[in-house]
Nucleic acid binder design. Structure first.
Lengths: 212, 212, 212, 212
DNA sequence: GCATAAACGAGACGGTACGTCAGGTCTTGAA
DNA sequence: TTCAAGACCTGACGTACCGTCTCGTTTATGC
């Protein structure tokens, strides 16, 4: 996730090795700065100071503010996982609440939208976000579907490409609704909302599956 | 929409009046700069130059980059309206496609997410976005429901507060899905997608309404 | 002497005019910084702070450290003038002492040699030094000769090109000896030394003139 | 001249011995860098690279840029010696031309003035320059006087302190004039100039000696 | 019709952060 | 212990843009 600029692939043999503590100190400092100052107020000089590190050390590891914040925010999504609550509906509700809880944290709010905004003009950045943030969320949809199929709540998929489109649709609907409510409407994603949303989603998917 | 800083309330008696062409020239220059440079590359000095205007003229009308971009982007949503395509499903599909078409424009992509990011730490900015962008979209949901009720596709609402919650849910689901697919997944919102999405949404809402 | 970058020649009509106090404040701050820190310790950021001025203001007027220091040091030579002490020997002694007194000041010591060092690789800088520092000293040699001719101490020159060579020789001998004793040998130029030097110089010139 | 930092006193018993080629490689690289980049453009990292040596090796031997350049430039003056051309005047002319030829080399020009500038605030540096550069030049004056006394061109000195003052005066006059013409006036020291200068100097000294 | 007063263009101003670079120190593994 | 390599902290660099200010000029209105 980190280790982007050089050391990828293999180790170089000579010279002083990079400090391993520095990486995590910098990412933690970045999150702290996001909380205190927001995206636009965050400066790399300040992050370096907070991390007890020189600015050059920071630039040696990350190309700029965007890349740094992606990595710092991506770590927040490490804790995201699919709970096993017994039914598909309950699993989805759980994930929605988890996801919303992360999004509601100020370091995520400030950073994520900004970095998405930048990614509209920077393909490498978009790819980085996809890899370290988006795909990690999408994986939950796949896991949820597999688990529901095991439970017999969903039939095994017949046409793979159609199934793929459905996964993408579900992902955009779930993630989109949660993001929009949290960051645009600025309303809380609480249990009642999660239940209402999940009910509409599952009934819609069931209905769409039954009359094709 | 524009004219926020002073002219509120009434006219001033004397002195040279503000140039009316300047406002639109500045907003157009802002959109052009967004296309060329994106949010982070946009500078007010450059906008002023593009508009053939002094920087002071710009600051006399807008407090800063955020407010200017909100106004510049908000104008894009002026063209958004509810088409009458005969059925609720067709109406929704039409709105979804319209909305996606606007979002896909580079001046909207670059600017909108960035200004939303800023709004997470600036309540006045959030309010401004809500007024000039979000509410204008939400109004379409209300209009669509009213039209569907006239057509008999939907029953008249019974409980106003429950109806309000439903409108908010629908709005977050529609806008969220379109925004997420366009700006996060970076996939096109075309007619097949709009149809699939609309079908899931309407079946889900119908199902949720019938088993309360 | 200052006014190098733009405003030379004519005034531009529009825009805020440059602060006139800033120029002198910056030069004075530069001299103070030279005294406190020497050439290598002098930073433009520190000069700006001392002058109560932004760094950009400084860069708007001077291209860099070298040009700034030339102007700051050149001002020291404003006070250099040919005293009328009645005889050529006394005049030369006076000038030598004056010149040495200026060179002995720490702001001159630190700055002048450094800027001469830079000028060996920068023709524009050398020309600037010549104009604002060297020629002003050389003029004293010409004045001194003219005054001595009026007094009858020296014959009017016959061959102009030979006279020119002689002036250059005298100038290099006087300035060189004073500079070398002050800055290289680091010994004081006091009245006895000035008398000894002047005697050798004048006797040598007289001798060279009489046996061609 | 080099080996200042550690090896003082005696040999160390254990460990890898210092590379002897490294010293000369570093000094040569320093001179090359002076020619290519001048004093201000010279960096110790670049010198190390040119010399095929690590930066640490360089710092193990010299305290910094100043000390390194003094040693690098001092080596240029190794070739300076008093030619025996038969007469005092011819000897002086020869030394003047030799000295000027060294000063005219770009590695000397760039480095010498800069290091003199630094020495105005650094006594240790001034002492180092005196030892490795200045005194080596001054010795030529002493040798020249001795040789002229042997030839009978000059009387043996009577008062030692007066003789010492005279040597210093001569040295400042000779070195000062050559340095000033070469580095400040930026004019060539050629044979005609050397002859004119020598004539004025010797006639002046002779005159001053004869009427005290 | 002429003074008033605000808006205008131009651009200098004091700031702040940028991303880079050099100085000098340190930590590694190999010689 | 020295060496090459290279990461490290420090601090200055010169630039860019910020938002404000000070000019001289232009342009509606109101006395």
């Amino acid at each position: 996730m980190v280790a982007d600029m050089q050391s990828r692939g293999s180790a170089h043999r000579t010279g002083r090795p990079r400090s391993v503590e520095a990486d995590e100190a910098i990412l933690a400092a970045t999150r702290a700065a996001l909380v205190d100052l927001g995206w636009s107020g965050l400066t790399l000089g300040d992050v370096a100071t907070r991390a007890g590190v020189a600015k050059t050390t920071l630039y040696r590891r990350w190309a700029g503010k965007n890349e740094l914040v992606v990595d710092a925010v991506a770590a927040l999504f490490d804790e995201l996982e699919l709970p096993d609550r017994g039914t598909l509906a309950a699993d989805i509700e759980g994930v929605v609440l988890q996801f919303a809880a992360i999004l509601a944290r100020p370091e995520a709010k400030s950073g994520l939208l900004a970095v998405l905004a930048e990614s509209t003009r920077d393909d490498a950045l978009r790819e980085r976000i996809r890899t370290s943030v988006v795909d990690r969320q999408k994986r939950l949809v796949l896991e949820g579907r597999a688990r529901a199929q095991v439970r017999g709540e969903l039939p095994p998929e017949s046409d793979p490409s159609s199934a793929d489109r459905t996964v993408n649709l579900i992902f955009d609907m779930v993630a989109g609704a949660v993001v929009h409510r949290t960051l645009v409407s600025a309303e809380p994603v609480d249990t009642p909302w999660a239940q209402s949303f999940t009910r509409v989603l599952l009934l819609g998917l069931a209905g769409a599956a039954s009359h094709p």
